[in-house]
């Protein structure tokens, strides 16, 4: 499954360590929550990484789905009634996929910088829709008062209000998403998607409809982006239009480029490094933007293929 040496190394170090983290942190609520947030972001960034790095579809509107994941849940659920987590996960994924199908149909007609801009435009429209709305809390955001239950046939598997349980849900989700993308890429579908990115004309000549493969990829990535947003909304029970802002899309893109485009596991690396630096610098100085910006610039200059690329070159050297 994990063929690349650096990737194998990363997966074997990261996931066992992540499994142990809540124990090492002695269940300190904040750190467990913070790590869960980063895991959620990693899912979001990974879905973007698949789209940008694997399919060559650059978007600056991925936050559209992140925010939708949260807002769909708010719109679907009754305010004071616990709903079933699995059922609503399905709803959110299904509706987000449908929306992605329509959005993809529009945006995939363009490419390059124009696609960047049209995705941005659609996300901004959605941002203003929720920001101006009176029904969904407007600019101040909206609460989710009661978290879903996780019963399956009357058996409660875990408690979403328990930070450690929630952490493991996020970790499991991240692992599954990574595995899923790996499987997709190894399948025939994935190989054609690769071919589409390498050489669209040739793929068309071979009799494949490039548009269909792009659209399918777009729907998959968008639905998983929405899933990340749904988890984020559930974590603290708070949804705000800023989830849909272009800054959210931009930051995710930064994390993905930083990690190494198209490597998937690089998305986890990029997210953790970016969030770690942010956390470190903001506790160090009020002007955290200065060291943050300088370090981003230095990393772009130093790493040709992101952090994952750097890791690979290290592993290769040892070999």
């Amino acid at each position: 499954m994990f063929t690349n040496r650096a990737e194998k190394l990363f997966v074997w170090v990261f996931f066992p360590l992540a499994l142990l983290m809540p124990l090492l942190l002695e269940q300190n609520t904040f750190y467990v929550n913070k790590l869960a947030t980063i895991l959620i972001l990693s899912i979001f960034v990974m879905s973007l990484d698949y789209l940008v790095g694997r399919c060559g579809l650059v978007t600056l509107g991925h936050a559209l789905f992140y925010g939708l994941g949260g807002y769909l849940f708010v719109m679907l659920t009754p305010e004071y009634e616990a709903v079933n987590f699995w059922v609503y996960t399905f709803y959110v994924l299904a509706i987000a996929s449908l929306i992605a199908l329509v959005v993809g149909f529009i945006v995939l007609r363009t490419s390059g910088i124009y696609m960047i801009m049209i995705t941005l435009a659609l996300a901004q429209m959605c941002f203003y829709f929720f920001s101006d709305s009176t029904d969904f809390g407007g600019n101040d955001g909206v609460f989710i008062y009661i978290k879903p239950e996780t019963d399956v046939f009357g058996l409660s598997l875990f408690d979403l209000d328990n930070p450690v349980h929630f952490y493991y849900l996020c970790l499991l989700s991240l692992f599954n998403v990574l595995l899923f993308f790996k499987l997709v890429m190894r399948s025939k579908f994935g190989r054609i998607v690769d071919a589409v990115q390498e050489n669209p004309e040739r793929t068309t000549a071979l009799g494949y409809n490039v548009f269909h493969f792009r659209l399918a990829s777009y729907v998959i990535a968008s639905a998983l982006g929405a899933y990340a947003g749904y988890l984020f909304a559930l974590q603290y029970g708070f949804v705000n239009p800023s989830m849909l802002s272009w800054q959210t899309s931009g930051t995710a893109l930064v994390m993905s480029i930083l990690g190494g485009m198209g490597t998937l596991y690089g998305a986890i690396l990029g997210t953790f490094v970016y969030e770690g630096l942010h956390y470190g610098f903001e506790h160090l100085t009020e002007n955290w933007m200065l060291p943050m910006g300088v370090l981003i610039i230095l990393m772009v200059l130093a790493f040709r293929h992101g952090l994952a690329g750097y890791l690979e070159s290290l592993v290769e050297k040892r070999k």
Partner: peptide, 29 residues
């Protein structure tokens, strides 16, 4: 800065200029 990125991916340039936004915001403050 920019001169080092001409032969690189466009997205690297995006990342670099975002780094610059951070720096300028901090300097302004």
């Amino acid at each position: 800065l920019i001169i080092r990125l001409y032969r690189r991916n466009h997205l690297d340039q995006v990342l670099l200029t975002i780094g610059l936004i951070f720096v300028f915001n901090a300097l302004q403050s």
